[in-house]
Amino acid sequence: MILTDKSNALLNMSGNLPPKVPHAFDAVYKAAVQNVLEAFAPNELIGAHQFRGSQRDRSLGARFLGRRLPQVPPADRVVVANGTQSILMMLLAGLVGRNGRLALESLSYPTLLPFARQLGFQLSPVAMDEEGVLPDHFEAVCRSERPAAYYAMPTLQNPTTAVMSIERRQAIAEICRQYGVTIIEDDIYSLLPKNVPPPLSTFAPEISWYILGTAKSLAAALKVAYVLAPTARAAEERFWPGVRATYWMCAPMNGSVVSSLIEMGAVDVVIDAVREETRARHTLVADRLGSANMRSRPDCLHVWLSLPANRPAIEFVAGVRALGVEVSVSSTYAMDNAPPNAVRFGMGTPPDRAAFERGLAAIADVYL
């Protein structure tokens, strides 16, 4: 049976968006919009750019960042931007630049590949283990290739779901400090798990740019993310109004609505609901694929599924696709052209639990 929706499109399980939770999200989002419309004259709010975000948005963004940091940071070090990708574009262009080098895990966020081509920098992939980047190999790369920056995702790494221990984070931070490598930390998956180590950036704040977006914990299309710069001056210099060739600036209405969600305490309501639904879907994964060689955890938005040697990933993906379901092949994430025999599938893109079960059945049928 072909597992498609009513439009006959493939059921997308290749993405790792948060599951929709309208029972928790809709009412608080409407209330946040209403709060903004009552508090601000629309033309005053939207009639001019708010470079780096308004004072209110940066202050509440600092509070949001404080969910993961040891304390709420100063608002003058915070920039409010139009999603994580736009922050990365600005930082990679300014901190790495043409002919520079970016260190990253050998399996990493695939959008970095087109960024490298567009901005003209080189990638320095680093070997990994179950925690992520290997310190010895990372130091060797820093010594021999002199990367300007390191793109880090130490919590629920994409795609492997790796979580660095505190000891590993301390070691990596010290290597970065020793070799003058700037840390660009993408912590976007960190708000769903309740017990994970503090950000890598906390171990070397003077050389770190810490990014925390909303797209993986609240709703995919909110497109509001916050970046904490090492200093207030660095925030101003790197995200100054004269840089007009990108899309980094957040729409004032969008930033204000997310600020209201933070101010109202509604962020917790949504995150709790997303976490609950994610865990419920992981229970289904364990029931269907409990014997499989896979990596994840109940509060992660994706599963890393290793395949037997006699089941090449490309053939596996094709087999699942023939049943109407899309998953991601490991080569999508390979930065060193040596992908393992594995696939990644996500928790949240199927619109409801029943659709997720149908997609999971297709994955299990091809795997088992």
Rank of each mutant, 00 (worst) to 15 (best):
I184S: 01
I184Y: 01
I184E: 00
D187W: 13
D187S: 08
I188F: 08
Y189T: 11
S190K: 09
L191G: 01
L192D: 06
P193D: 12
K194F: 10
K194I: 13
N195H: 14
P197E: 08
P197F: 01
P198D: 11
P198M: 11
P199W: 12
P199E: 06
S201D: 12
S201P: 03
T202K: 00
F203E: 13
A204Y: 00
A204L: 07
P205N: 09
P205F: 12
P205C: 13
I207Y: 07
S208T: 07
S208A: 15
W209G: 00
I211C: 08
I211A: 04
L212M: 05
G213V: 10
S217Q: 01
S217H: 02
L218P: 01
A219C: 02
A221T: 06
L222R: 08
V224Q: 04
A225M: 11
Y226A: 02
V227A: 12
V227Q: 05
L228S: 06
A234S: 13
A234I: 03
A234R: 11
A234K: 10
E236A: 15
E237L: 11
E237Q: 15
E237N: 12
R238S: 08
F239Y: 07
W240M: 05
W240S: 09
P241Y: 04
G242D: 14
V243Q: 10
R244D: 11
A245D: 15
T246H: 09
Y247M: 08
Y247T: 11
Y247C: 05
Y247N: 13
C250V: 14
C250I: 13
A251L: 14
P252L: 13
P252W: 11
M253C: 03
N254K: 10
N254F: 05
V258K: 03
S260Q: 15
L261G: 00
L261E: 01
I262L: 02
E263L: 07
M264E: 06
G265F: 10
G265R: 09
A266D: 14
V267Y: 14
D268I: 06
V269E: 12
V269A: 04
I271Y: 00
A273I: 11
E276A: 15
E276L: 08
T278R: 06
H282A: 04
H282F: 12
H282S: 05
T283H: 14
V285N: 02
A286H: 14
D287E: 15
D287W: 01
R288I: 00
L289T: 07
L289F: 04
G290W: 04
S291T: 15
N293G: 04
S296H: 15
S296K: 07
S296C: 11
P298M: 07
P298V: 01
D299N: 12
D299Q: 14
H302R: 02
V303H: 03
V303I: 15
V303E: 02
W304C: 05
L305A: 09
L305V: 05
L307M: 06
L307C: 05
P308H: 02
A309R: 08
A309M: 06
A309E: 15
N310S: 12
R311M: 14
I314F: 00
E315H: 10
E315C: 06
F316E: 08
V317C: 13
A318C: 03
A318H: 13
V320M: 02
R321L: 04
R321E: 15
A322V: 01
V325T: 07
E326S: 12
E326V: 02
V327R: 01
V329W: 00
